[in-house]
């Protein structure tokens, strides 16, 4: 048995937002009588953590604790329009809509607080913990709860805001291809270390080391979830997955998880990553979409590492043991490389 090790790299970028734009999303925010804030959306959380990220963005702008933010989604009767969760657009589009709505709601909140404290709203600041204070005057403050109660029961005012984000649609020039397809680009560089068993054709991914540039890590724990889960999916695409193993022949398509191959808990590599932040001019707090990108960079890195290990190129995904063995056999007959 011969096990050969190799290392490969890849560097990629990934566009944020629906290709060519024209994909709006909205948010509505209102305060309850007791100073909690309901963010109403029609956006979908696929498991990537949309509700959590939107909570943090709303809390940041409103200047209140995340615990006092309630995300209400997705019901088309009550929630304003959202184009959907795809194309790494959710954080960017919905996040921006929430910033707009929360800014309006915050201004309404500070107006009421200013009247209660008899100062101009511009002289107020929030502490992010549920209080609104007069800048530079220690002790002169009001709780968000009291401001919300006063707004409702004393002034008869709503504390609310409306937000929408739209990147206007770009229409490509079909002569030259000129267009404005995206809002910003995230970046990744991945190094894969693999071990190829030249007798079985099996590839073991030992380690994936990556650097990701994502604009702003709004929640580092969610970022990490995307990195680890996405890297796994990339590895799975590189080595295992297809619904048509003999493409373009339609025969022998897998119909269940026993036949549709993916790496299991025994097959996972070591992960290591660093995060870079170059805030995007258009992103919420500079954030870019990263959910999709994390699955992309491992694929060519693994393919390049396989070549580095055993000197054969497989240019057809997935790189299965069968393809690898055939290529190794052919290379053994022909002179190497």
């Amino acid at each position: 048995m011969t096990r050969l090790r190799g290392r490969g790299i890849s560097a990629v970028n990934y566009p944020t937002g629906m290709n060519l734009g024209g994909d709006p999303s909205q948010a509505l925010i209102h305060a309850t009588t007791t100073g909690n804030f309901v963010v109403t959306l029609s956006s979908v959380d696929l498991g990537q953590g949309l509700r959590t990220i939107m909570t943090q963005i709303a809390a940041e702008v409103l200047g209140v604790p995340p615990e006092s933010v309630i995300i209400d989604t997705a019901d088309t009767d009550t929630g304003p329009h959202c184009m959907g969760t795809f194309a790494s657009r959710a954080t960017h589009r919905i996040g921006n809509a929430i910033i707009m709505a929360a800014t309006e709601a915050r201004n309404a909140l500070l107006d009421v607080a200013g009247e209660e404290l008899e100062v101009a709203a511009a002289d107020l600041e929030t502490d992010g913990d549920g209080r609104i204070a007069v800048k530079g005057v220690p002790g002169k403050s009001i709780s968000v709860l009291d401001a919300a109660l006063a707004a409702h029961f004393k002034y008869g005012r709503t504390i609310s805001g409306r937000g929408i984000y739209l990147k206007p649609r770009s229409y490509p020039d079909f002569e030259t291809g000129a267009m404005d397809p995206d809002s910003c680009q995230a970046h990744a560089c991945t190094i894969a270390e693999v071990e190829v068993d030249t007798e079985t054709g099996e590839v073991r991914v030992l380690k994936l080391t990556s650097a990701y540039e994502i604009g702003r890590a709004l929640n580092p724990m969610m970022v990490e979830q995307q990195i680890v889960g996405g890297s796994w999916m990339g590895m799975s695409h590189a080595l295992y997955e297809t619904t048509e193993p003999y493409y373009p022949d339609r025969a022998h398509g897998p119909v269940d998880f026993a036949e549709y191959l993916m790496p299991g808990p025994a097959d996972i590599p070591q992960y290591d990553a660093v995060i870079l932040e170059r805030p995007s001019a258009s992103g919420p707090f500079g954030a870019k979409g990263i959910g999709e990108m994390t699955a992309n960079s491992p694929i060519p890195a693994i393919a390049n590492a396989i070549f580095d290990a055993c000197g054969v190129r497989i240019d057809e995904l997935p790189i299965t043991p069968e393809k690898l063995l055939r290529a190794l056999d052919a290379a053994a007959v022909a002179p190497r490389r």
Binding site: G47, G229, S231, W232, M233, F257, G264, A266, Y271
Partner: peptide, 19 residues
């Protein structure tokens, strides 16, 4: 742990956090 989880599919997490 790996053995105990080997019949369970997760498409999101990449298994490492589960282990």
């Amino acid at each position: 742990v790996v053995e105990a989880l080997s019949g369970n599919v997760c498409r999101c997490t990449g298994y490492e956090p589960i282990i």
